[in-house]
Design a protein around this nucleic acid. Sequence first.
DNA 1: TGATTATATAAGTGAATGCTTATATAATTA
DNA 2: TAATTATATAAGCATTCACTTATATAATCA
Lengths: 114, 114
Amino acid sequence: MQTTTIKIDSAAIVLKLLGDKTRLTMVKLLETHNCCVCEFVEIFQASQPSISQHLRKLRDVGLVNEQRRGQWIFYSINTEHAFFPFLKEVLKQVPKQDYRIKYLEENGTRITCC
Amino acid sequence: MQTTTIKIDSAAIVLKLLGDKTRLTMVKLLETHNCCVCEFVEIFQASQPSISQHLRKLRDVGLVNEQRRGQWIFYSINTEHAFFPFLKEVLKQVPKQDYRIKYLEENGTRITCC
DNA sequence: TGATTATATAAGTGAATGCTTATATAATTA
DNA sequence: TAATTATATAAGCATTCACTTATATAATCA
């Protein structure tokens, strides 16, 4: 009973995080492509701090991991997270956003270091 | 492209609505039991206006329907909503909340009119 | 080594959110 | 018909949110 209560509350926290179009799109993209901050800045045409702050929220609950590679910091989905299966199922319902990666590639702003 | 953008934005709006433990629990309950406002007041030990306002948000985007039966207004899931399949899949990931209905029944506060 | 690039974080701000209290309306009951 | 019950809604308020600008740090490059 208590466990159930805790679980649905945690689910609400995750859904709240996903309830923002920028973060939802980020996570959908990360499902298939690791991305760095500057790629997101380009994709969303948003300021760098704004993007960093969205990523921080995802990182704070552990849904994503960060990994530095050279001057870039790449983000990826944390598949070890207790809510990863939940996240996966939600993302399954969301349309692919791969065209945004294509845009980067055509744009020459896709980062493929190391 | 445009369609895809609109869809993921709409998905984010729905997820944001579900990203509140009260509304998420409400919708999970409504998945299996139609409920009236006073039942939610009892279940969540919340004020009547607070419950009404949560239901209004769900109603405003059309996720739930309301139907007056005598002095009560019963809420139900709108299975005709474009996002109903999406909602259904999300709810599938959320633990059942039926024990809350049992609580009403044992409590004598379950409304079963008409 | 100094300039540049990529990133994080802090502080400030306006808008949105979820609650409260107060009030209005609709149906039921005495 | 008056009182009660169920509900909606409006207004006010504290908190949260997503953004901005400003600044700091870390890595790379010239």
